[in-house]
Design a binder for these strands. Structure first.
Length: 491
RNA sequence: CGGGGUGUAGCGCAGCCCGGUUAGCGCAUCUGGUUUGGGACCAGAGGGUCGCAGGUUCGAAUCCUGCCACCCCGACCA
């Protein structure tokens, strides 16, 4: 048990916060609501980026970069969009500072007021569609499949490391298509990419579905999302893909000539996944010993720790350990050999557990004698001693097994915490006592959703794509319903 | 923006109620030594505008006033 970590079952929120700080992923910065992502946390983000970027390119997308500043007038062109983001925008009003005339410090120069104020992007639809207007004239210019990796700013009231910060990093894809069908297909393709990524790389089982009108992206016709369950039973939206229809094309007057020579507005999608995913990773898998990282996302997959008494012993161990390290590296495994002598092996064991390194190898004089090595896996904390000669095969299999075990465990947790509920009292009771995913019938109205939210804090996380057709009655209003939707209290 | 809490060494805290030598403890750091198979031990050392600004007092970390910051709980959200 990690002594320095708050117990997960006693105070989940504090456990999470402790873990982020103590595993050295991030910390609060001098700027209110903004975090410093530290090297170890950023390394995880880089792994996320590398894999997603590969997947985006494999599905035909390219990267580009659009400005962080958006003229205020752009923002007001799409009515729903403005309404959705107006309350959380940072605005640049001046472009110069000067020395304070009273001699102390520096002040904003009032004569340097911007003619038109600039919004710091909370998302980039408007600035991008303003460019697309110039790029698109004919069906031959379509589709445009662009992604960008950037920071965005949303001025939040309350922030939490990774889960909600004023500034965060994400990728946003913005595509333009000739037909409605093609745009919808793209929207679906990308939610599938996200789900695939979440399940296969983050070992995070997700529910894919449609957002209700209330939860939809401001400016979208339809929003698809992947929702994951955290260990405290709350839901976390892990990625979204939006079918924007022709809303932005109309707002920015982006028309093209189709094959028949007719003018039409362009169809759009956008989709995003943020550093919030790191929060999901932590809350879905980690335990009272610290982080548990799925091998495919772990910056360090294997750590080797020497155990020795004399410096002669260390020399011999070094030799063997370095061979093992380079052997593992040649088969594509990332390995750290920690031979620093300022901490004891026990300290290192605890530290790498805190950091979630999937596999730990320990090698001491006893092992050298027998040509063995101790292997410990982070997910189950089980230890075994194996022959050094078999280490490559063993570790590569073990990493795969850990990856799938973490997924299965999370999947089992979700199963155990998904409830099919038909009575309002049970609905309220389950939310109050257990939390979790609740599958219930809903009459499809925004009013009912609103009332449920007011009374229980639960919202419709999504209407699952795979929801079976079945006759039922709305959990709240009793009106007829044809499918169950996913309710939960969310992050 | 409402309600609650906290600001003392890099980190975690005690001291404050009831003002009084040189502000203390644990962790971390540095030096030396012994250690090393699950967060080692001994000895020594360095490190502080007690959040900021005023005030009361012979004397303020301690009392008073104002301000600031951060954390938790609510309304907004990926």
């Amino acid at each position: 048990m990690a002594k320095f970590l708050t117990n997960r079952d006693e105070n989940y929120a504090k456990w999470y916060n402790d873990l982020v700080i103590k595993a050295d992923l991030a910390e609060n910065s001098a700027v209110r609501g903004c975090m410093v992502i530290k090297p170890y946390g950023y390394a995880i983000w880089e792994k996320i980026q590398a894999e997603l970027d590969r997947m985006f390119k494999a599905t035909g997308h390219v990267n580009a970069y659009f400005p962080i500043f958006i003229p205020k007038s752009f923002f007001s062109k799409e009515a729903a969009h403005v309404k959705g983001f107006a309350k959380e925008c940072a605005v640049v009003t001046h472009y110069r500072l000067k020395n304070d005339e009273n001699g102390k410090g520096i002040v904003v120069d009032p004569t340097a007021k911007l003619e038109e104020e600039l919004i710091i992007r909370p998302t980039s639809e408007t600035i991008i569609w303003n460019s697309y207007k110039n790029w698109i004239h004919s069906y031959r210019d379509l589709p445009i499949l662009i992604n960008q990796w950037v920071n965005v700013v949303r001025w939040e009231m309350r922030t939490r490391l990774f889960l909600r910060t004023t500034e965060f990093l994400w990728q946003e894809g913005h595509t333009a298509h000739a037909t409605r069908e093609e745009a919808i297909e793209e929207t679906e393709r990308m939610i599938n990419v996200y789900a695939d990524f979440a399940e296969n790389f983050m070992a995070l089982p997700v529910v894919k579905g449609y957002k209700s009108e209330n939860e939809r992206f401001a400016g979208a016709i339809d929003t698809y999302a992947i929702e994951a369950i955290m260990q405290d039973g709350k839901a976390l939206q892990a990625g979204t893909s939006h079918f924007l229809g022709q809303n932005f094309a109309k707002a920015f007057d982006v028309q093209f000539t189709d094959k028949t020579g007719k003018l039409d507005y362009v169809w759009a999608t956008s989709w995003g996944l943020s550093t919030r995913m790191i929060g999901a990773l932590i809350m879905a898998h980690s335990d009272n010993h610290g982080l548990v990282l799925p091998p495919r996302l772990a910056p360090i997959q294997v750590v080797i720790i020497p155990i020795y008494k004399s410096s002669e012993q260390l020399l011999k161990i070094n030799e063997t350990a370095k061979k093992i390290k380079s052997g593992l590296e040649t088969i594509g495994i990332s390995v750290k050999y920690d031979d620093k002598d300022n901490n004891t092996p026990g300290w290192k064991f605890a530290d790498y557990e805190l950091k979630g390194v999937p596999v730990r190898l320990a090698i001491g004089p006893r092992d050298l004698e027998h040509s063995t090595i101790e292997v410990a896996r982070r997910d189950t904390l089980k230890k075994e001693t194996i022959a050094i000669a078999s280490v490559n095969d063993y570790v590569i299999k073990l990493l795969d097994e850990i990856q799938s075990n973490i997924y299965l465990k999370a999947n089992e947790f979700r199963k155990q915490n998904t409830f099919y509920i038909d009575k309002w009292d049970d609905f309220v009771d389950t939310l109050n006592n257990k939390g979790g995913f609740i599958m219930s019938h809903w009459d499809g109205t925004a009013e009912t959703e609103e009332r449920i939210k007011e009374e229980t804090k639960a919202t419709i996380r999504c209407i699952p794509f795979d929801a079976a057709e079945e006759d039922g009655k709305c959990i709240y209003s009793g009106k007829p319903s044809k499918k169950r939707v996913l309710f939960a209290i969310s992050y």
